[in-house]
Every structure is written in structure tokens, then in C-alpha cells.
Simulated scan of single mutants.
Amino acid sequence: MYSQGEEVIKPYTPTTLDTDVGYFELVIKMYPQGRMSHHFREMREGDYLPVRGPKGRFRYQPGQVRAFGMLAGGSGITPMFQVARAILEDPKDMTQVHLIYANVTYEDILLKEEIDGLATNYPDRFHVYYVLNQPPEEWAGGVGFVSKEMIQTHCPAPAADIKVLRCGPPPMNKAMAGHLDALGYSAEMQFQF
């Protein structure tokens, strides 16, 4: 995309799966000053947009691990949601998924209805714990930033057959890497999108 004569490239993770043939869906958080956000706001049905891909270093294979821990912040939920759907919608895949999803406010939670649907439809295989920095008055989830204690409580313990995926803003990614290291998750047990 071109903005004021400069090429702008922004990676997005589809929330659809490879089995969703003929289309893909993106979740895009609109920022007031975002150059891509501005372009998406201006688009109308029938407009064209150049797209490249797929691009990425993570490939999920059924049975790859016994359980995934997932640490997501903000729009970092999109690759987690895609992986969780791929696992849960495969009736032969018994992999457990434990998601900790952090946001500033309740209104910031992307895909909440879809995530809650996964928790309802796959209660034995999918677990979600929401964390808000500015929670509403009535709030049963976590408060503040994701802590080591939250990870210990809501993610599978370090083991050779688990992996913890993380995707969020750079400060969160850095803090989560520190927490995971301190809790004994080896480099092989971690992956950052």
C-alpha cells in the first residue's frame, strides 16, 4: 500500500483456516493515526488490495505437543485464535489449549464472542483467562499485567511436550519471555509470533 508516496507493508494473521477455501478474514484494530488503518477506513466494497503470503515461521502439526500455553496481548490474539481453531475443530486432535489474553479495557478484547464460543464448545480442551489493565467494576478475570503467577496458574507447566506461544506488543513480549525463562520454560518450549 502507498501512503504519501511511501510503500507501507503491514503483516496480518488471518483468523480463517486453510480449510476455509476461497476467502480469508482478518481482524484489524483501527488506530486514529495508523497508516494502514486510514487506508482500510477509506476502502469500499469492490476495492482491490495487494496481498502477499502466507509468511510465517510457525507450522502446526496435529499432536505436535500435549498442550499449548498462549500469551496474547491486544491484536496478538489473531495467530493464537487461528492455531486454537485449527486444533479444536479437528475432532482427532486432543491437544489442550490454555489462553491468557491481556488487554487494557473490556472494550479492547478482540474476538471475545468467538473465543468464548471456543470455551463453550470445547470445555475439556480450551481454557481462557482474560486479564485487563483497567477492568470494569464487575470483573472476574485478572487485573493488571500478566504475571508469573498467572502463567503458573493458567498455563501448562514446563515439560518436553508443551509449548508456550506469545504474541503482543513488544514490551509484553519481552516481559513474558522473562517470566517464562524464570519459570523454567526452555527456549524450545517457547515461540514468539
Rank of each mutant, 00 (worst) to 15 (best):
R59A: 09
N121L: 13
P136D: 02
G53S: 01
Y23N: 08
Q96G: 13
F126V: 02
V65F: 05
G34E: 04
I109P: 05
H39T: 12
A160I: 13
P14V: 07
Y31M: 11
G46H: 07
I87F: 07
V65H: 02
R125F: 09
L118P: 06
L165H: 11
L99T: 09
A177H: 14
L17T: 09
M43P: 00
G53D: 03
A84W: 04
L99V: 13
A177C: 07
S3N: 15
V27G: 12
P136G: 07
R57V: 02
L132S: 02
K92D: 10
A86N: 03
D181G: 12
V97L: 00
G69K: 00
N121A: 15
F58S: 04
E7P: 10
E137K: 15
G5T: 08
A102V: 10
D18E: 11
A177G: 07
Y122G: 09
H98Q: 05
E89P: 01
L180E: 00
A102L: 05
T153Q: 15
C155L: 13
A67T: 02
P169Q: 15
V143E: 01
K163N: 11
F193P: 11
P14K: 08
V51D: 07
Y122L: 09
N173K: 14
P91V: 02
S75W: 00
Q64K: 08
Y31I: 08
A140L: 11
L132H: 03
V65Q: 06
H127F: 15
E114N: 15
G53F: 00
I115L: 15
T16Y: 02
F68L: 06
Y122R: 06
H98C: 13
M94A: 11
D181E: 14
D161C: 06
K112I: 04
L88T: 07
L49S: 00
S186G: 09
A187K: 11
A67Q: 10
K148Y: 08
M189P: 07
Y23P: 01
